[in-house]
Design a binder for these strands. Structure first.
Lengths: 245, 245
DNA sequence: CTTGACTCTGACCTTACGTCATAGCTTATG
DNA sequence: CATAAGCTATGACGTAAGGTCAGAGTCAAG
């Protein structure tokens, strides 16, 4: 009738938030105009995410301090909003990093695919991430010729091998950081320097976090290796703070 | 040890999200480094408000589409954030209206209080709503002399009497709207016109909503009257839309 | 050996309902 | 009038992510 389910009315009746005006012989609940008005009030506060118990107090306790309730509720909501904002930033970073890595695999895919399939795949990719991202990336890739790419891939393999052999070292040690510097330059060749340069540090550290949160990327001998991921992320974080910050 | 409770570890073990590396004879759970790393991943996604079940999939299902998960999660978070923003606006409006009404009662209080008590009350009020609000309001009130205030109060009583006698009428009828216009002017004398003028309409309609959501304000013969509140809010809404919008 | 601090399992509690089962009521139709 | 469709009532269980409690076992220190 008014956008609330029967079950909801049962519940409100049960907790004394909204009692029916009367019952029929058969026990059916009957609500009058007064109850509809009260329901409006209940829904108003429910829209503000007040718990039902507190709505009870607001409506029934004459000494209830509505001000303080609103103010503290406002503070709580602000905190929630801030937390969501933080989460959105983190998600965006994660997606950006994921895109960065996927670009690498793209290049591998494009290389070995017949043109038709590559075209179909491209369409799908555009649907997923939007045209802009894809086109940007392709433009970047076009500037690299096949020899460049092959070389970068070989370099990356070597860097990974070196780093996986240094896993027992301190991630901040010069030996490790030297390889990390190579790693960074290699990654940057794919990413280009299109991002705002002062954000590159964060992006690189974020990529390290990605390695930890998604085990598909940090591999040793072809197998995902969580310890290697953590090692890399520490080393990359240190690098970004000391050399890119 | 790592910011998670024992109960949490029990739960994660139970749902297969994080199983201990082994158990002692006595059944104690033992976690190795690998498990700590996995815990980091779990916490990462939990911070993003992913449900535990989905974290299971992210970490264990190799065919899981992390992109789509992140994108749709992002959409959901955006919706949540927007909803919270709306709630904050509504709360602010409600508080502002409440303040507006409280200012009226303030003036009554200040009038009859000895200076010391008034001063103490003022301090408390400043703590609650911030100095700016209070000072603004006091400046406004100072411009009105006692005769003005007395007259406004008498007018308001008359307006309320007239309106309560019109409760059976259509809230949009000219007779009602004529009294509502008086009501608006009277209120405005207290509020001043300090708000952005294009927001006055919304503020007035919002005051009407307040009457519905808080039964302390709309009274007939000194008694709260929910029907009168609804009648007033409808009439005020119509007024703000036709005359202030 | 005892004590205190820890762990184990199992169970119940929280929010605001949705869903289901069983039973009774109401109403339209044959 | 009988019956079936569609409503309602009550009671119960399930949800997410643990918190809290109870009773029992375990560990290290004094």
């Amino acid at each position: 009738m008014a956008g609330v389910s029967v079950r909801t009315l049962h519940l409100y009746d049960q907790i004394g938030l909204l009692n029916p005006a009367e019952r029929t012989e058969a026990g059916y609940r009957l609500y009058g105009e007064k109850e509809l008005l009260r329901l409006q009030q209940v829904l108003f506060y429910k829209e503000l995410d007040f718990p039902l118990k507190e709505i009870c107090n607001i409506l029934d306790d004459p000494g209830f301090d509505l001000y303080q309730a609103l103010e503290s509720h406002k503070i709580a909501l602000n905190a929630k909003r801030d937390r969501i904002a933080t989460m959105l930033v983190t998600i965006d970073k994660t997606i950006a990093n994921l895109n960065g890595k996927i670009m690498l695999t793209h290049e591998e895919l494009y290389e070995g695919l017949p043109k038709e399939k590559a075209e179909a795949y491209r369409k799908e990719a555009i649907e997923k991430w939007g045209e802009e991202t894809i086109v940007k990336s392709e433009n970047k890739l076009r500037k690299l010729n096949k020899e460049d790419i092959k070389q970068l891939k070989l370099d990356m393999e070597d860097i990974n091998k070196q780093l996986s052999n240094l896993m027992q070292e301190d991630p901040t040690s010069p030996k490790v950081q030297e390889q990390i510097a190579r790693h960074y330059e290699n990654i940057r060749s794919f990413w280009g320097t299109s991002g705002a340069s002062d954000a590159q540090g964060e992006a690189y550290a974020g990529l390290g976090e990605l390695y930890v949160s998604d085990n598909r990327y940090a591999k040793v001998d072809g197998e995902p290796n969580a310890e290697f991921a953590l090692f890399l992320s520490k080393a990359m974080k240190h690098f970004s703070e000391t050399r890119l910050g």
